[in-house]
Each structure stands twice: as C-alpha cells, then as structure tokens.
C-alpha cells in the first residue's frame, strides 16, 4: 500500500513539474529551485510533514522533500540549541545526501567519460 501512495504522490509532483516545463519558458534549473523552495516553505508551516506521513517516499524523494529536509534540520536544531540551530541545521539531515552527491559524483567523474 505504501508503495502505491509513493508512486502516485511522487508521480503527481513530477507531472506538475512537467506541466510547468511544457507550458512556460522556465528552464529545468528554475523548476528544480522552485520545487525545493516550495518544499522548504511548506515544511516551515508543517504542511509538508503531514503530506509526507501519507505519501512516504513520494514526498521525501522529490527535491521538494529535500527542501523540507533542510527546514526539518533547522527546526530540530533550533529546539536543541536555540538560535544557533538556524545556522547549523541546514545540513543536519541533508548533509548525508550532499556528501553522498559529492563523493559519488567525484568517483563517477574519475571513472567515466561523458558520452553523446
């Protein structure tokens, strides 16, 4: 069941992005940033977490979930440390992903050449 909701929710978010891409002149970079920001803002108001409870990975895996993770890190650190948490929290959860991206991205760059 959770697989089905993940499929439907994740698919719906991507389909929304596709509608924007096909009907505006926005570049993929603009859309990627917009969805991250939307996830962060909705996360700040607690809306995204409620969506995630129902959608599971369908909410976590799109970049909006990544934006939400940034805010969740800030808010949990805020609770633990006070105002310093706003500055330390961004990578509390996402740090794992960002480091993975750098390590694996670097590794792939060493191993492979771009192809047509």
């Amino acid at each position: 069941m959770d697989y089905l909701t993940a499929f439907l929710a994740g698919g719906a978010i991507c389909a929304l992005a596709q509608i924007i891409y096909d009907n505006t002149k926005l570049t993929p970079a603009h859309i990627l940033v917009s969805f991250t920001v939307a996830g962060a803002v909705l996360g700040g108001f607690g809306v995204y977490q409620r969506f995630a409870e129902f959608a599971g990975a369908g909410a976590i895996i799109p970049v909006s979930g990544f934006g939400n993770s940034i805010v969740m890190g800030m808010l949990s650190e805020l609770e633990r440390l006070g105002w310093e948490g706003l500055f330390t929290g961004a990578f509390e959860i996402t740090g794992l992903g960002v480091t993975t991206a750098i390590v694996f991205g670097g590794l792939m760059a060493v191993l492979f050449q771009p192809k047509d």
Binding site: A6, F7, G10, C14, A15, G56, A57, P62
Partner: peptide, 9 residues
C-alpha cells in the same frame, strides 16, 4: 517519477 519514488519507498 512514480517508479523512482517507489524505489525510494
């Protein structure tokens, strides 16, 4: 997108 999120799940 759906399939990628299902793998994520």
């Amino acid at each position: 997108g759906g399939v990628i999120c299902t793998i994520g799940q």
